[in-house]
Design a protein around this nucleic acid. Structure first.
Lengths: 98, 98
DNA sequence: ATAACACTTGGTTATATTGCCAAATGAGAA
DNA sequence: TTCTCATTTGGCAATATAACCAAGTGTTAT
């Protein structure tokens, strides 16, 4: 396995890592429909503001979401457009297993 | 967020967690074409036999792969058939980013 | 300018993950 | 039966991740 292949795997892995947390996955799903600001997540998740912010940062670094500051708020939106489809695939797969 | 929704998120998260490691992701990709036994992975990954076995166990618990013992060997094969498609989606997405 | 607001960043502790080694298992060969 | 061979399991140390609190940043309101 060469260095380029290792890099490819690490980049892909970073996306899966970003999605591998219930709070992050939930936030990503919330963004399927429309953008949200950080405070909207904090209320529902019952996590510290800093914790939610860090989770969003992980998703942003993996290029799954992107942010835009407008006024006092930072709005996050979905960047990886195929994610709704991916989650649908996995959900259907899970059904077959039971 | 109710208990059922939490469970759904955790199950989905388990799949992403399983894929969130370079060695595991690589092994899964190797299974796109055909089944493999554990020793075939060990040689290339340069990891301990026990380590590879544990990685495969994680993927198996997430229902991403399945195993079948035949003779002296254990053969692993892909169970989540949509994975090649999913990885293709993410790869294309990454391209747009650069 | 100063205060309030919506975040982000730094630091710390608790918990989870990963890797190796050594020992256990289970099937086929001798 | 006893001996390999292929793999799994248990245990431990190193590293990574996740949560909170406190402090910092940048923007808007007063």
């Amino acid at each position: 396995m060469d260095i380029k292949e290792k890099r490819r795997l690490e980049e892909l892995t970073e996306i899966f890592k970003a999605l591998a947390h219930p709070a992050r996955l939930w936030m990503v799903e919330q963004l399927f429909e429309q953008e949200k600001c950080v405070c909207e997540f904090v209320d529902v998740l019952q996590l510290d503001f800093s914790t939610v912010s860090k989770h969003l940062s992980v998703l942003k670094h993996a290029h799954v979401i992107e942010d835009e500051k407008r006024g006092k708020n930072v709005y996050y939106s979905l960047r990886t457009k195929c994610l709704p489809h991916i989650i649908e695939c996995l959900k259907n797969n899970a059904k077959l297993e039971n």
